[in-house]
Design a protein around this nucleic acid. Sequence first.
DNA 1: ATAGTTCTTTGACTTTAGTCAAAGAACTAT
DNA 2: ATAGTTCTTTGACTAAAGTCAAAGAACTAT
Lengths: 296, 296
Amino acid sequence: METKHVSSLRRFNRYFTRRIGALDDHYLGQDRPLAEARMLFEIGEAGGGGASLRELRTRLGLDAGYLSRMVKSLERQGLVRVGVHAEDSRVRVAELTSAGRAEFAEQNRRSDALAEGLLRGLSAEQRGQLTGALRAAQRLLRLAAIRVEVVDGDSADGRACLDAYAADIDARFPEGYDPATLVLPHEVSGDAGALLVAYEEGRPVACGALRTLEPGVGEIKHVWVHPEARRLGLARRLLDALEQRAAERGFDVVRLDTHASLTEAQAMYRACGYTEIPRYNDDVYASHFFEKQLAR
Amino acid sequence: METKHVSSLRRFNRYFTRRIGALDDHYLGQDRPLAEARMLFEIGEAGGGGASLRELRTRLGLDAGYLSRMVKSLERQGLVRVGVHAEDSRVRVAELTSAGRAEFAEQNRRSDALAEGLLRGLSAEQRGQLTGALRAAQRLLRLAAIRVEVVDGDSADGRACLDAYAADIDARFPEGYDPATLVLPHEVSGDAGALLVAYEEGRPVACGALRTLEPGVGEIKHVWVHPEARRLGLARRLLDALEQRAAERGFDVVRLDTHASLTEAQAMYRACGYTEIPRYNDDVYASHFFEKQLAR
DNA sequence: ATAGTTCTTTGACTTTAGTCAAAGAACTAT
DNA sequence: ATAGTTCTTTGACTAAAGTCAAAGAACTAT
């Protein structure tokens, strides 16, 4: 890897955290410990339903005892109200009181004012450029943080993604989608195929399946990306990973089909070296068929 | 200002400080308090000559007593050696011992490894895109943080910039440059003209002068940008600010001259609406002459 | 020379942040 | 029903971070 990229990232990190991050923390905190301010912010961000202590603990990476005490302190200050979770009464849920919401709004106001102050020195055009550059950087940093893993055909994360996929396209296809059509666990386990799940900060955000169509021929199914992880280039990465698995398993060629309505997907397949072929199955949802020779 | 830009900056800040900044801090610290690790890093960055406690204090924003104790602790650990400043014996200067340098190198190694880990998930092309986006963002953030101020004609910062300007072009012009040619304090003070200095985090990084050439005609002189603040678009901003001052002072037109060798400057003047005119003075350093009508 | 500043150190604190272990209540799987 | 988990609270700490004021040595300006 070129050292240029490493040093550029480090340089940016130093500059940004010192100039913007530290400043924002300081403004956010104001007359309250930073950890408390941060927690108030997280509870506020969670919105109406409140945030469970469990969530807060993982989100902020705090010790359970420390967090418990901090919530209690916020409660004493009248900013937070704690109740039990509707479904699991071990779990406690914190939500803002009206005083807490006022404080949260004040935090936001201060943070906005800080950001505005930073942007004030730029022309409208430069602000647009900055926003564009930050968006591009964030997209790439997110993408870099996502890990694609091979999971078992009946793994909970894998099935959850497939179910989300089914629900997603059921809403999208005029004719709906029957979840019984999904690949079966044994079709994508062991030597038969593969199920890939992409994780972002521990949460599954995308999947893709590979199964055996006939000897030497693999089929790629159910490439799906969570709505909040779209436009990162993740589908392409999953496709690459699936092709690599296919090559490792000794397939010479992979095929896939797609629904007429998914035109972006079709464009992606073409861009990734797939060529359109005649119908190879009787899938009622499929209208376009593609295939790609794998380099061995 | 569009709220889009504000929220985009805030979103990026949250994502970046949490994902990258916090991680880097954690790695940097390792088995040493973060504040100590940071200080070691700052002393290391300062290089051979060491860093004065005074510098460190402002750079890290720490209380004098706190810093004093921290340096002493680093000294006890054999990582830092403290001596007195050559010119001012109130000031103490900290520099790394060889053990300190080893620790500093280790910090850098860890930080590089972290950055490399982050970049590993990206293709070479995507890494290039990320580097480009970060560079653009940093450029704009720096530019946004720079404030242009009107200073008195004999202000220390102003004269320091003008001296730097003179030294700079003395090295650049084949025939050298005589500093006696610089504008005099009274020419750029009060109603006669203006001296602008641009500050980045308290340090003067650029200047520009405006003086009266004849009634209704101003002259822009000595637009200079510190080498470390170049390519940010700062010269253009100074030029804008000088023109604004000129308009406020009632000039109808501003002129300027430039040396044949400064082709980038000439291109900038043209891009900013200046048109070339015949020689209007007998300045030996000048070969191209420009003028711009000011909107009133 | 002298008054006012600047730079640093020291003493005496407080607050914030965080850790670890024990224990109880509520869930889950068998 | 019961054993094992999960979620949270509490007690008992420690370490890190930071503040404030006083004081001495070294500078600067008049």
